[in-house]
Design a binder for these strands. Structure first.
Lengths: 211, 211
DNA sequence: ACATGTGAAGCTATTCACAGCC
DNA sequence: GGCTGTGAATAGCTTCACATGT
């Protein structure tokens, strides 16, 4: 293992840096420095430098960071130099929105299959893909070579679907249902819960209101 | 200021505790202890106790925590004893999914208005609400007394819409567009970016793959 | 006996400040 | 002179371990 260990907090900021670098690239900036990056992504210069230094010595003293090179490097660290294949499981309103979200392809991801349990949806069009039945989940995942699953099923069934995803070889799950998933070690899960975010916002409103 | 200062990390876990307590309530558990809570929400007992202790002395030594009382207390801290009113801005596929998401009402939130810029959508039904034009944004927000905005507009216009939300008195924004919003102090923003989450998952896949 | 609440210890992350290099 | 990379200092979070109360 060459790369010592990039802290998890740093990893979580890499996508932000990448976004800001892509913007700089569009603005035809050949080089960017830590102060500019910090401004663009709402951080501070020392943090940016420290984070990037975990990935290697990527900058040039007195100059800054080469935008192209840094984009390439962060993309490599994030493992998105090739587009990664993902499946959407649960084609309700949220699953539908995710399937047709245009931001994924340009950020390194491709939706390659869609599954749902509802017989009325099976076989219908999902923005260019066909909605497949849950019975085909394991085979379908192997067929298309998907590595990531976006889980947009109803909360009560999410755990059992997750178990099947894992047994089909999925190692990364983005869970949109408000339940904690139990998965074996080696499987990465990220939880997105909009109600949770709203409740945190509500806390801040409540704080202000007790003036 | 009576309540010393609840750490931000603790606040972020309160919604998780609340979810787990509601589950305990449904299972007719009158009392729960820190070990059980930790198991249910994937934390550890010391963390649970420390977090809850920031809110006051809510447990009984030798017994544990009264489920009902703790639900009430956390709800109060999160400011969701009354349902908070939110507007959805941007009624595309994502905005549509959010508007009809049934999880909000039971977690303390109510969508009270929907706005969009597209003339073809204005006036149409949004699951029981009427899609209103962006021209009515400020007046509409004041009219319905909304405190929170869920921002699901295209990335390029999100900042200018956010500015208008703030000038209309909104103090909490849930931003679903992949751009950093600049807002004045006193306005809380939470950023949800699914591409970011996928990229973090991709990093973990990449780590494993370099075996 | 049992489980909370909490100082203290240990650990991780952020910020500072400057040496090192262009 | 300017900007990176980084050890040192600081701040913040988590875990431990036990005194405290039921």
């Amino acid at each position: 293992m060459e790369r010592a260990q990039v802290p998890e907090t740093t990893i979580q900021r890499l996508p932000v840096y990448l976004r800001c670098l892509l913007q700089a690239q569009q603005e035809r900036m050949p080089v960017i420095n830590s102060v500019q990056m910090a401004e663009m992504c709402g951080s501070n210069a020392a943090q940016v430098r420290k984070d990037l230094s975990y990935l290697g010595e990527l900058g040039t003293r007195g100059i800054g960071y080469d935008v192209e090179a840094l984009i390439a490097h962060i993309s490599r660290v994030l493992g998105i130099t090739e587009r990664r294949r993902a499946v959407v499981v649960g084609y309700g309103r949220l699953g539908g929105a995710l399937r047709s979200y245009t931001g994924f392809p340009e950020r390194g991801f491709e939706i390659v299959a869609v599954f749902d349990a509802d017989p009325a949806k099976i076989g219908t069009d999902a923005d260019g893909l066909v909605v497949r039945p849950m019975e085909e989940l394991e085979d379908g995942i192997r067929e298309v070579g998907a590595e990531i699953a976006i889980l947009a099923t109803p909360a009560p069934v999410s755990q059992q679907v997750a178990d099947r995803l894992v047994s089909a070889g999925i190692r990364a799950i983005l869970n949109l249902a408000p339940v904690r998933l139990h998965v074996p070690a080696g499987v990465a899960v990220r939880q997105v819960c909009l109600s949770t975010d709203l409740q945190i916002l509500s806390f801040h409103l409540a704080q202000e209101q007790l003036t």
